[in-house]
Structure formats: structure tokens, C-alpha cells
Simulated scan of single mutants.
Amino acid sequence: MPDPQREVARRRGHEIFDPIVEPLLAEPDVDVGRMFGSEGVRIRGKVFAFLGFDGTLMAKLPSARIDALVAAGIAQRMVMKGRPLREWIEVGIDRGSAWPEIVRDAYAFLDEITP
């Protein structure tokens, strides 16, 4: 994706993502931190959702939830260095209406498993 297109997509991603994240920042132990060169939202230092460079939502979820989202055509598994990550998904801007529930699920998942 050329840089001007990437920047437009990234801005659009933030238009969707930022209002979802804002109320979560009022929760205990939730803040903003870096993940793969992007800012993400984290709980107790562990990132549970962030935007990719192209405005795509990346979220950490249990494998069963990921399987359901992939099967429904809402998300795809995040791939790093040619290898799909077990607990990370990518959700495009075109599926922005699904982002609030996915981010809340990612928050709940990390809250549960992070000491």
C-alpha cells in the first residue's frame, strides 16, 4: 500500500479504534504502550489490542474465539515472519463494526490471564 493510502487507512483505523479504547483507559491497570512499533492498549503491561501500520486492528484472543471469527469471515490470523500466531488476529477497517466487541473480548481475555 503506498504511503498516502496507508496514512489515510491508518487515520480511519484511529477514528474507529480511539473511541473504543478511551473508556477502557479509565479501567484499573489499563494504559497505552508500544507493540510492534505501534501504540496499543494494554493491561498490567500486556498489550491486548493495537493498530497495524495500515489501520488494521490486531487483537489477542483465545484460540476458540479466533477460530469462530475466522470461520465467520470477520478476521484472519495474524502472521509474523510467515507463521500464523496462535492468539492474535487481524481485523480490517471494513469490519470496523466488529471492533468494539473484539477489543472488549481481548481486554477480558488479557485481564483474566495476566497477573
Rank of each mutant, 00 (worst) to 15 (best):
P100A: 00
A59V: 08
A26P: 12
W99M: 13
V41M: 09
D29G: 08
G33W: 14
D29Q: 12
V91W: 00
P28W: 09
P84G: 11
A98M: 07
A68G: 06
R104E: 07
A26L: 12
M80E: 11
E22G: 09
D18P: 08
V47N: 05
R104F: 05
L24T: 07
F50T: 10
M58N: 15
W88M: 13
M35G: 05
D31C: 14
E39N: 14
D67C: 12
G52A: 10
R104Y: 05
D94P: 03
Q76R: 14
L61Y: 01
A64R: 13
D29S: 12
R34Y: 10
G45Y: 15
A64Y: 09
M58C: 13
G45W: 15
D29W: 12
W99H: 05
F48L: 11
G40E: 02
V41Q: 09
E101R: 03
F48G: 04
A59P: 10
I20Y: 00
R95W: 05
G82N: 01
R83M: 15
V70N: 01
M80D: 07
Y107E: 03
A72N: 05
I66S: 01
G92I: 08
L69V: 04
A71L: 08
R77A: 08
L85C: 11
R86E: 15
A72Y: 05
G33K: 13
M58D: 01
I93M: 06
S97Q: 13
V41T: 11
R77Y: 09
D54R: 07
I89V: 15
A106T: 09
L24M: 15
V32S: 03
R86D: 12
W88A: 06
E101V: 13
D105L: 05
E90F: 05
L85M: 14
M80G: 04
V103S: 01
A98Y: 02
D29T: 13
A71N: 06
I66V: 11
A49N: 01
L51S: 06
L69G: 02
R77C: 11
R83T: 15
V30Y: 10
A106N: 03
D54S: 12
F36G: 03
R104K: 13
E22T: 14
